[in-house]
């Protein structure tokens, strides 16, 4: 909303002492901003506290966990981490982390490459059927996955891809995530074409232009795409739940669900400790690159 301090302040122009009205307005602005800070701080604390509590609780003993709302453990212990890491399966939690990584990396690379090619095609060329095809990008953006999931499963079953990572990799590597395609197209449309045209005049092919001119300029958008795909794949639960059946291939999300189902009812600290670990990669990536997240959301969103 409007702030009074943004209004032109005649006192600065004339050097006169501030009038009664100005003093009143300034006091109002101070109260206003104090009020905003208070609201933001209280809500912020309530929002972040569950996460802080989670970290603290993962170092608590099981008996302490449900006895006080404080987050600081009275007798810190890493037993939860040690026991949780072993899991109830023949594999350690590290194994599940590697599985997650092995799902994420090819999927993210495939997404970045396919989105770049497709966005370049849409943003820089005219071809028959372009408008209809672009309309399908928007339609897919709104299409609920729930309606395509069963036949997709049947398709992957028939070509023998069940219990492999292929159903998780391949659709994304074919620019299947409309959100990312849309985001890169929007970003590319905002980039002037001068450099590309100069390169074409100098005899570069479109592919060379794409690789040497467009991709470097697209980097911020591509980093956003990769970061979001990393997060979403790390969090993805339903995909692996449907396609991955052997425990050996479980990603972290399935392993966590398994640990809830198989751990004895009293071993809460193990589960919370593994939850902390499961969240850590996303948190680290977010704090290293939060600028790209905020920009990514704003490009994909506002211009929509």
């Amino acid at each position: 909303m409007v702030s009074y301090s943004e209004l032109p302040n005649p006192a600065h122009n004339t050097g006169d002492a501030p009038t009664q009205l100005e003093l009143k307005l300034r006091r109002k602005a101070r109260i206003n901003s104090a009020l905003r800070y208070t609201v933001l701080a209280v809500i912020g604390l309530i929002m972040v506290y569950p996460l802080i509590w989670l970290v603290g609780a993962s170092f608590k003993t099981n008996s302490e966990m449900f006895s006080s709302p404080g987050f600081w453990p009275s007798e810190p212990t890493v037993q939860g981490y040690i026991d949780g890491w072993k899991t109830s399966t023949p594999y350690t939690f590290g194994h599940f982390f590697l599985n997650s990584l092995w799902i994420i990396i090819p999927k993210t690379i495939g997404t970045a490459i396919s989105c770049t090619l497709v966005a370049y095609g849409f943003a820089r060329f005219d071809f028959p059927g372009k408008n209809i095809l672009f309309a399908t990008v928007i339609a897919t953006l709104l299409l609920p996955n729930v309606v395509t999931r069963i036949p997709q499963y049947l398709l992957f079953r028939d070509i023998g891809w069940l219990d492999s990572f292929l159903p998780l990799w391949v659709p994304s590597a074919m620019a299947g995530d409309a959100f990312f395609v849309f985001m890169v197209i929007q970003f590319l449309r905002a980039i002037p074409r001068d450099m590309e045209e100069a390169a074409r005049v100098d005899g570069a092919t479109t592919l060379q232009t794409l690789i040497f001119i467009v991709v470097p300029m697209l980097m911020p958008a591509l980093i956003s795409v990769c970061l979001f795909q990393f997060m979403w794949t790390m969090n993805d639960f339903l995909g692996p739940l449907i396609y991955i059946s052997s425990v050996e291939k479980y990603p972290v999300s399935l392993a966590l669900k398994l640990s809830i189902d198989t751990t004895e009812a009293f071993a809460w600290n193990q589960i919370l400790a593994m939850s902390v670990l499961a969240l850590t990669p996303s948190l680290v990536v977010f704090f290293m690159a939060q600028k790209y997240f905020i920009e990514g959301i704003s490009t994909g969103g506002v211009k929509g």
Partner: peptide, 17 residues
């Protein structure tokens, strides 16, 4: 030419959507 660039999308759209 543009169709070549969007061809991964077209194939994915037909097969997976």
């Amino acid at each position: 030419l543009g169709l070549w660039y969007v061809s991964p999308y077209i194939i994915g759209l037909l097969l997976f959507t």
